[in-house]
Design a protein around this nucleic acid. Structure first.
Lengths: 351, 351
DNA sequence: TTGTAAGCGTTATCAG
DNA sequence: CTGATAACGCTTACAA
């Protein structure tokens, strides 16, 4: 059953190069002291034999496996896929390699994934969705495994928490709606109830409440396109039809937009203003031209790996949470202009 | 620099459980002979201590690491992302774990990825894009690493090759166009020149040639949405405007559709019939309702892992290539009805 | 700079 | 069923 495999090992390389095993090891270790001559001889023998350092064995001696675990659900979804791509790329750039583990919505499956990370002695785990059990998190931490939580809004410390300022984005959306003359506000959310989704909802409600405006909130299904359509059906047949809706994600917004236009014959942004969140690629497609808030995916990946690169004590000394801005991307589903464009227009008039 | 990590090892578990190290090992080995009593004692001690079998070490003794490498480029793209998702899931279902490696378009980067797979003693590598160097492929094979090539259309054997019947799909598209009354055919392709893209193009041209119809082919840029828009601009301003275009991928088709409608004011399918390829999720969104051909992603993953599950000699005995059908998905960018619907309609009339 | 030897955590073999 | 012991392939003091 176990397939017969015969990898060439350092010993064979050593023999062929006429040196000792350690010399071979050193030849492949960046800062080691080897004479240029032996290094060359070793490298020659190695390529001739097709030798590749066994990272499994190396991870055994060293205390680093070079593996970073990416765990999350709905990895086929545009936003998640872009995150996976950015993370795997960042891992490679950091000289590591990413192991990706799919989870379903259950927190149990997240714990199972973390257990897998432990099995492979991953140097770190990056969690894109769900919440691991406290106990398994502690176990990882105790074993020297670093943990990064993306948009998880957790309060335990030890892990690095990277979050977006969802509330600020919500306020921003509200301002844009107001300036567009909208007053009948709605928030279209899924029933997933993840921290960031809820933060957006709360932020929007709070901002509206601050100026005494009510918000109709509707929640339905998972965070997918179809839910957006259904949410549109519910919201747009209500007795008082909203004239501005903040969709919790772009996927929802796309579905909402399609239903609003094709099923209700509404013109956006004339009859209705809409914003999304994430800035997935499709948001920029001309059928949508969705005004939305960008997940700073590259920046998230950069922050995560910058922290991972730090020595453990150093990392422990740093604040364990970083907050990033979700920049508003103005396109064409909200009437009016972005502040910058307004400033430019004003300048033009004055000139 | 190397972070101080102290994982609990089998020895500590053994001590606590009052058994030998080998007993611990056996307790975690499915078919091993251990008394129910010791197994329970071991398991208890293990959970109490937070012990997790070290798969790095296990991979060292066994000749299997349990790692499957997924290598490909543009992993954030809808089709690729769905493939990654399906593959990582299939890996987990098969009791393995997926390591994903990003490549750019260069074949050199694919070889580098394969080298990485070698480093980690991956049991198999699944290649989603690009072509590895023959020599590195041979090296992997010699080292007992199985290789699966997805839509790569290669002729070397050793790897399992999973391909779609692109030509058949192309013929299918042509038939649909013809039945819709279209005669001015075009093929919109990217400049990527990947095997499957070219196979679709060749297939379409061949089918058209067989009945004496010319096809305008235009190629531009990478296989992305924007390229589709540009291809539309080129094709739709031509002296004789096509009335049917086969886009090499759905992404291209979406761009093409958007430009055709929003920039040229064309009605689809009335003025123009369009088909895509892949059946990405967006193809089903109502702004597109794209008639297309589905990549049988789940089936591809299933085939890949079914083959990987086979013992090496068994796998060697099997045909090393499997061809899958890209089923046509009828939506609304081609006039007319699918064969099944026509048959049903005929039956209704007769009744 | 180089080689020798010990150790990393498993599993497989072989006695008992 | 159980326990010692020898690999597995690497890194890294330690000594030369």
């Amino acid at each position: 059953m176990p397939p017969p495999r015969k990898f060439v090992s350092a010993r064979e390389v050593a023999e062929r190069a006429g040196v000792s095993r350690s010399a071979v090891s050193r030849a492949f270790t960046p800062g080691a002291s080897v004479s240029e001559d032996t290094r060359r001889r070793v490298l020659e023998a190695a390529t001739a034999l097709g030798y590749h350092v066994n990272h499994l064995a190396r991870g055994l001696s060293l205390k680093e496996s070079g593996i970073v675990c990416l765990v999350g659900s709905e990895l086929g979804t545009p936003y998640r896929a872009s995150l996976v791509k950015a993370m795997t790329q960042a891992a490679q750039d950091a000289g590591k390699v990413a192991m990706v583990i799919n989870t379903d919505r259950s927190d149990e499956s997240v714990s199972a994934a973390l257990r897998q990370a432990l099995h492979y002695r991953a140097d770190a785990s990056i969690i894109l969705s769900g919440m691991p059990d406290k106990s398994i998190t502690r176990l990882c931490l105790e074993n020297g495994q670093r943990i990064v939580l993306i948009n998880r809004d957790d309060d335990q410390d030890g892990p690095l928490r990277i979050n977006l300022r969802d509330g600020e984005a919500a306020r921003c959306a509200l301002t844009a709606f107001l300036r567009a003359g909208c007053r009948r506000l709605a928030f279209a959310n899924s029933e997933a109830g993840t921290p960031s989704l809820m933060a957006r909802e709360r932020g929007f409600l709070a901002a509206a409440a601050a100026i005494g405006l009510p918000v109709t909130v509707e929640r339905f299904g998972p965070s997918v396109y179809e839910s957006g359509r259904e949410l549109a059906r519910r919201l747009l047949t209500a007795r008082v039809r909203p004239d501005a809706v903040f969709c919790a994600t772009d996927l929802i917004a796309c579905g909402f937009l399609d239903a609003a236009r094709h099923e209700f014959g509404l013109a956006v942004p004339e009859d209705l203003c809409v914003t999304g969140f994430d800035d997935i690629e499709q948001a920029s497609w001309s059928s949508y031209s969705l005004t939305t808030f960008a997940q700073p995916v590259a920046e998230i990946a950069r922050e995560a790996f910058a922290w991972l690169r730090l020595a453990p004590e150093e990392a422990a000394r740093r604040p364990a949470a970083v907050e990033l801005e979700a920049r508003m991307v103005w396109r064409r589903t909200v009437r009016g202009r972005p502040p910058a464009a307004r400033a430019a227009a004003r300048a033009a008039v004055e000139a």
